[in-house]
Amino acid sequence: MLILTCPNCGERNITEFRFGGEIKRNSPKPEDGASDALLLANLYLKENRLGVQKEWWYHRAGCGIWFIAERHTKTQVVEQTYLWEPQP
């Protein structure tokens, strides 16, 4: 029964949120006509990291923002949560 810190609302029970998928390291968006292997890897293969994972969360029962959490997949320690920013 995790506690997540919404960047907007603060600490809330996990039941208020919806998981939005892991953010994989080195995940290029496939171009049109990309090879089957690249398309497959992008769409279906998960990294499933043991360690600190970056992932999307949606504050479904609250303010409705999407944010990124960095969570250790074994100890369940959530290191930080923050809004997405465009990379320079």
């Binding site: 919806r18 939005g20 999307w56 949606y58 479904r60 409705g64 923002i65 999407w66 809004l83 997405w84 465009p86």
Partner: peptide, 13 residues
């Protein structure tokens, strides 16, 4: 609606 918001907040900007 969630999908629209995700796209807007995660890169479409």
């Amino acid at each position: 609606y969630e999908g629209i918001e995700w796209n807007l907040q995660s890169g479409w900007n």
